[in-house]
Computed example of a mutant assay.
Amino acid sequence: MDALARKIIYAHGGLDRWKTFNTLTAHLRQGGVLWPLKGYGGKLDETNVTVGLGREWASHSPFGPEGKVSRFEPGRVEIRDATGKIVDELDKPRASFAGHTLETPWTEPQLAYFAGIAMWTYLNMPFLLAAPGVVCRSVGAWKEKGETWQKLEVTFPPDIATHSTVQTLYVDDAGLLKRHDYDVEIAGNTPGAHYIGGYVEVQGLRFPTKRRIYPRQPDGTSLAEPLVVSIDLSDIRLA
């Protein structure tokens, strides 16, 4: 494994500790222009998410004010009502985004897919760096906000559903995440700069609680607006 990847994993509590848990649950407060742009303003403003650690799945509850519950896996999305009955479903969900741009509205299962891949990726990072088939490469330094961060290029294998095949992490001297870049392939390869902070320690592991995502320009700098997505996490629990 790349030496910088090892440093990042160690700074967040270490792989051995991570492997003692199977799931992570957190409370989310979310905002930003993406949700209304896709036709779902307010739907996931306040919810809870549970993700698998290692095995890729995620569930949002409630999934909207009606008390629905979503279940995302790379090959299938299900939405159930408050009684547990399936009310919507989508097989091979990634293929359904073919031809989409940033402005293309989503169906509810597509929303569940996006929210699923996003939160599974974010909450499994940086331990995903040690997953089979993931390739990491240090790509030098980056200066921003009066600091110097180290950059790690991460290439994901086809069996991991995430925003884009190639992503970039930026970390401080302690190995903590400061920024995470990717192109949202299912929204016309829209480039994002995802800022990370507000670390807390939970059950021996370190997690950021504040995430802010802005447009990324071709030179790697980010725009100050619009705020595409905001995510604030609380009540993080591992089991």
Rank of each mutant, 00 (worst) to 15 (best):
V202D: 04
G204P: 05
D91M: 13
G84E: 04
V33Y: 03
V200H: 01
L176D: 06
P126W: 01
R71H: 15
G42V: 12
L205I: 07
L227K: 05
D91Y: 09
P208V: 08
L90C: 12
S70I: 14
P226A: 06
A115W: 02
A131E: 14
A161P: 03
M125E: 14
D219G: 06
Y40M: 06
T101F: 03
R94W: 12
L128F: 06
G146E: 13
P158S: 13
W142A: 09
G197D: 15
I9Q: 00
V184M: 15
T121N: 11
A95W: 09
V202A: 05
R237W: 03
Q167S: 09
H180E: 07
D45I: 09
R216K: 10
T209A: 02
D172F: 03
E89R: 14
R211Y: 12
H180R: 10
K68S: 10
W120Y: 11
E201P: 04
I117T: 09
A5V: 07
L15R: 06
F114M: 11
R137N: 07
V184A: 14
K85M: 07
G42I: 15
V184P: 00
Q30I: 10
L53N: 03
K19H: 06
D91Q: 13
A141W: 09
L176N: 11
N22I: 08
T121W: 00
S164P: 06
E144K: 07
C136I: 11
Q167Y: 02
W149F: 14
E73W: 09
G84W: 05
L15M: 14
V229E: 10
F72M: 14
